[in-house]
Design a protein around this nucleic acid. Sequence first.
DNA 1: TATCCTCGAGTTCA
DNA 2: CTCGAGGATA
Length: 699
Amino acid sequence: MAGQQASVSEDPQKIRSRILALRAEVIKHQQAYHMLDAPIITDAQYDALVRELEGLESRYPELAPGPSPVDQVGFAPKREFSEVRHRVPMLSLNNAFSEEDIQQFVSRLAQNLGLSSEVLRFSAELKFDGIAVSLRYEQGRLVEAATRGDGSVGEDITPNVRVIQDVPSQLVGLGIPQVLEVRGEVLMRRRDFDALNERQSARGEKVFVNPRNAAAGSLRQLDPKVTAERPLSFFAYGTGEVQWALGKERNISTHSEWLDALAEWGLPVADDRAAALSCEGLLKFYSRTLERRASLPFEIDGVVYKLESLQLQSQAGYVSRAPRFAVAHKFPAEEASTRLLGIDVQVGRTGALTPVARLEPVFVGGVTVTNATLHNADEIIRKGIMIGDTVWVRRAGDVIPEVLGPIAALRPAQARPFVMPTSCPECGTPTVREAEEAVSRCPAGLTCSAQRKQAFLHFAQRRAMDIEGLGEKIVDQLVEKNLVSSIADLYELTADQLAALDRMAKKSASNLMSQIDASRSASLSRLLFGLGIRHVGERTARDLALHFKSLQAIRAAGLEDLLQAPDVGPVVAASIREFFDNPEQSAIVDRLLASIRLERLDDRPAVAPVSRAVDAQPFAGMTVVLTGSLGSMARDEAANWIIALGGKTSSSVSAKTSLVIAGEAAGSKLARAQALGIRVMDEAAFLELIRPFRDQGAL
DNA sequence: TATCCTCGAGTTCA
DNA sequence: CTCGAGGATA
């Protein structure tokens, strides 16, 4: 792929051609990014190209004649817009990717200034993923707006910026300079982006890959009426040219004071910022912001640190195209492009065929991704993905990677479309697809080895029979060696049989044996869930157990009886009947009952409400949603506390939700809660709330 | 009948 | 975590 370090030998001819190739590549991406608003590679990949080119050009200046694209901050303006020359150039920032980079930045700066690094103080702000613009105010009135362009000449986008609600056309307040150039970022909030895309696709118009592209595309409309319909936002983060009226200079000595002043005059300045931090404080700001990244209403790609003292800033000066006194501390990229090598088809427990993308490994969102689900055939068509494409992969706050879509320009001639197999890839049975359903299924049931394996894994999982040690590797072997053909056979396995398996010593075999034995004493709700009846999940299994009180009663229940149980409708009732009417399944249940003692109906939250003692129950009558990971206790435990203290938990945020408790790395649920204006509590506050009860040892 | 709310099912990587 | 779909409710 482009951007990989070619091992350049010392042959001058080769170095020269590498430099020329890199220059061509960099120029191509600069054009794609700045002129067409359609980047082909990620910022990180682009940065890598630039770094390699810079390295070669500085080591071998004699082989690199003429101007280098590296010296261009951006790219020359599109011809449709008239040019604006920036009176103070709009520079870019140097990037840092690690703590070491930051420490180095601080100590180098201290050295340059002849000061100790401990005395330096910095401001910290968000680095918005949007479009940099410069707004010129004269006597407080907006007179001109321009894009960054190549840093010295940008495009005149004044009519478009005038229709952005966030941008005041008139500044308010006292002590406004005669001339004030405000530097800031135009961006689109996530919610606005989603809504815009929905509208675009409803109208059959182009949808945008991400908010940044949407903002760029919207800002550079030739017709400002179109821009006016696009929900753009603006945040100010600095200044360009400033001229004070004679004798009216305001005493501003730090960067943070400037931001305060801009906010005072009516310009939007992001609240998420910090002043006067030490190097250590910067790193704290970074990690705190990284945690909150997913729950912010807009996208950011890092944080920016600037030396506070304006006087020291001017002492520090500039290196070619970036200030020495500021640095961008970038987050790991959330999006990356990579090649789609193939699409495999997996068979799930219910026989559902799921296409899975096999990707060339790519580092995105902090991990290396090689697989990503594509859900179903419709999804692949909707996204227009073909095998062999270069695709965008995203791994946002929500852990699970997602293929966004192909980069059309990079589609190879031999790319081929995906075809859903018409027979099961595991057992060859012809697949069926119900009308109106998105999934294809293998109808073979337990005859299909893939489904049989999944049945074991489901039965053994923690929330079902909780047989630790019965994982994928072991199940594969048990099934392939025909040691078991149904879950009932598990209870007839011997320690010798287990010990004969690969990767199974005597010790682990006997551990597994005792785990299996331990599961012989179980609750009805766990067994019901473990059977794997379609549409009967953990919750429904529990409802059924508590309603019918015995497996016999459930097996004997007719459709009418089943419908009486809570949350059971015609589809679920039919599925239950079908399961027990199947002679094969029925025989398995009979055999299981011979091996298992059902000792309880249910063994989870036998949580007694804490009523006495501190009589106010903090969660009385509330519906609470937990999201993110709590550092100090398991989610289940937290849920038990909420139930014990009068509340109810739910898995999704809706208008009925009364409270959201957000742990670390909380994602979309937190964002949704904020959108709906629902009360949000962090872990510390939650612990504080339950502390009196915890101290008493209730639970 | 339409809308809202939950549940079930499938999935990734370290 | 997200999607789709089943069930409850107005």
